[in-house]
Design a binder for these strands. Sequence first.
DNA 1: GGTTTCATGATACGACCGTATCAGAAAAGT
DNA 2: ACTTTTCTGATACGGTCGTATCATGAAACC
Lengths: 206, 206
Amino acid sequence: MPKRVDHDQRRRHIAGALLRIAEQRGLQHASMREVAAAAEVSVRLVQYYFHTKDELLLASLGYLAEELGARVARRIAALGSPPTPRDVVSGTLTAILPTDPESVRLTRTYAAFYSLVLAEPDLTRHGAPHPDLLERLLAHQLRAAQQAGAAHAELDPGLTAAGLLALTNGLGSSVLGGQRDAEAALRILTYHLDRLFVPSAGHTPP
Amino acid sequence: MPKRVDHDQRRRHIAGALLRIAEQRGLQHASMREVAAAAEVSVRLVQYYFHTKDELLLASLGYLAEELGARVARRIAALGSPPTPRDVVSGTLTAILPTDPESVRLTRTYAAFYSLVLAEPDLTRHGAPHPDLLERLLAHQLRAAQQAGAAHAELDPGLTAAGLLALTNGLGSSVLGGQRDAEAALRILTYHLDRLFVPSAGHTPP
DNA sequence: GGTTTCATGATACGACCGTATCAGAAAAGT
DNA sequence: ACTTTTCTGATACGGTCGTATCATGAAACC
């Protein structure tokens, strides 16, 4: 037998090369040859670990989702304990908004996959349980804030959570599109959060 | 000289074929040959009216923007006169949200161009004065509503307008992505509008 | 009414695409 | 030591891409 290699690591390495190309130059340029070159690997190797290009695309998208999920989780975990519901909401949403290099990279890469997913929905038939999950997390935090008197009681948590997520996604698009810088987007997001949560001692005293 | 032909009409016809392909199968399939076939025209003709593919893509995007702008204008013009600011805001936003076949077509097509524009920003160096324009329109309407006592006075019109636009774009993405249907998106949008405008006789009495 | 000019068609060229094939190196098991 | 299995490399094939070339139709102008 040959030297045993960590297949998963190899797959991540190659998929990472594809994600890098997708982020920087778009999926149009993510050909097998370009991916192999970016991973400093032969084309045959890419074929070996991913039998077909669709498989490579799908796996890469999976790794990307994993990475974004990890970032959100890390952000939430890094909050002081116990974090206020607003901290959780704000932390989650700013983790998705392209403000720092990592989030720019992640959202740019996601954007590269967006139209592909729209055009070929079969590719992700079994994917994306995420958005609904995030929405539920946010709604749950909003409810907790209401019970603690930290958010206005008449808010509908579900509709508000969905709105916040859509707002953040829309802001992210405009930032990536260059119509707004990250600072302006963050200002808009914070403004809307301020309208949901009642002011407390710890937060942005005027 | 040959029979004189309306060049602009021909260009629109060909660009329309590209837009149709982009919407239905994505820009990946919008090759010169496919566009020509969809327009029932020879490849040479496509080359004749658009010297290069980039030119075709750029022109098509322009026509698309024109079409969306016309839809918004038509929607606003169709409002009773004088329309309330809320009607204008709501009409503008629902014109953008993919709720009926035409708006689905427009937003799907836009989405197809999205990642291309992100990857090749040079293509649209001179384009897209639109978003800022819409934002200003919404902000202006919000201010008018405030002066008429129809919207809460403490709102920041600029930030709120930007938020509404981003919210609508985000909702549109989720509808196109199939995570939500148009009805749910409209419900979320209406909920947020309800939180901005003070209830009046004409609107959704409980 | 010939000629110029605009408009259109058929076809070819080189490049790159995804994938398949052929072959070989390298390490574990016996 | 030798076989067997896992891994890697070079190269070829058919297809499609964007674009260029060559050729021709048909109408307006002198």
